[in-house]
């Protein structure tokens, strides 16, 4: 079988597990878990430098931008304008054009604000960004975002950080079947089976942060997610058997010793 690459815009990856870098207890753990996940792409947030602590160590002292594709996000943005400002700054900081756009609706649900997301995507695509966009599990919105020119659509499985798995697996499948760009399940994955299920449904990749960062053993969970994504992907490519209402014996129904 030829190598099963994950292509997003002009980028190509072997790994289909994208990781976040938030919520870890320290940078060393972030680094070790990212390695354990075999990830090639890692999200980062853009925030003000604390000017009174200029010499404090930074995430990128541990996560080497030469080794990983850095995916700046717009976490914490609640309108298109802030998201656009944030990503323009990120592009200047590191030269990154592959970005994660997320515009949120409110702090309680962290559900996407789809109207603002669409507005921001239109501007960012025109400015030459390769936009991977976080959105609802809504097939119509997914299609709209693809039409705008986003390089990947990333529907949520469940709210960010909730770890509740896939609320609506059917919609993930519908989104995937209609899409001509990669579909990444982003948010809601809680454990390995959620990641495997996402991949079995046909998702091109998954994006996981909290489920790894809040596991008791972060590196072991990172490995579990890595294996689940690989297993789920292979199962999808292999093509699963049809489900049946009744049993179907696995052993031949002939040659019995009592016949």
């Amino acid at each position: 079988m030829s190598k099963d690459m994950f292509k997003v815009g002009s980028y190509e990856f072997t790994s289909r597990l994208i990781v976040g870098s938030g919520k870890y207890k320290d940078f060393e753990t972030t680094k070790l878990a990212t390695e354990a996940a075999d990830a090639e792409m890692i999200t980062v947030a853009v925030r003000r430098v604390n000017i009174t602590e200029a010499d404090k160590e930074n995430l990128l002292d541990y996560i080497d931008p030469k080794k990983y594709t850095i995916l700046p996000n717009t976490a914490g943005c609640f309108n298109a304008e802030d998201a656009i400002r944030t990503l323009r700054l990120a592009r200047e900081a590191g030269g990154w054009d592959l970005v994660k756009l997320e515009v949120l609706g409110d702090t309680q649900t962290l559900y996407p604000n789809v109207v603002e997301t669409i507005k921001a995507a239109e501007v960012l695509v025109k400015e030459g960004f390769q936009v991977m966009v976080y959105t609802n599990d809504d097939p119509i919105v997914a299609t709209r975002l693809e039409e705008i020119g986003c390089v990947a659509v990333m529907p949520l499985g469940n709210p960010i950080g909730s770890g509740r798995g896939l609320a609506n697996p059917f919609n993930i499948r519908v989104i995937k079947e209609r899409a001509n760009v990669p579909i990444v399940v982003d948010a809601g994955i809680g454990t390995a089976s959620d990641a495997a299920k996402s991949m079995e449904l046909g998702a091109d990749a998954v994006l996981i942060n909290t489920a790894i960062a809040e596991a008791k053993n972060e590196c072991l969970m990172a490995e579990a997610m890595r294996d689940a994504v690989r297993g789920g992907r292979k199962a999808f490519l292999a093509g699963r058997m049809q489900k049946r209402a009744f049993a179907s014996a696995s052993s031949p129904s002939e040659g019995y010793i009592w016949d």
Binding site: K23, R48, N58, N73, L89, A93, G94, N209
Partner: peptide, 10 residues
């Protein structure tokens, strides 16, 4: 003036 950098985030 805003000066920003990258920190951990999902």
């Amino acid at each position: 003036i805003e000066i920003v950098h990258m920190i951990g985030g999902g």
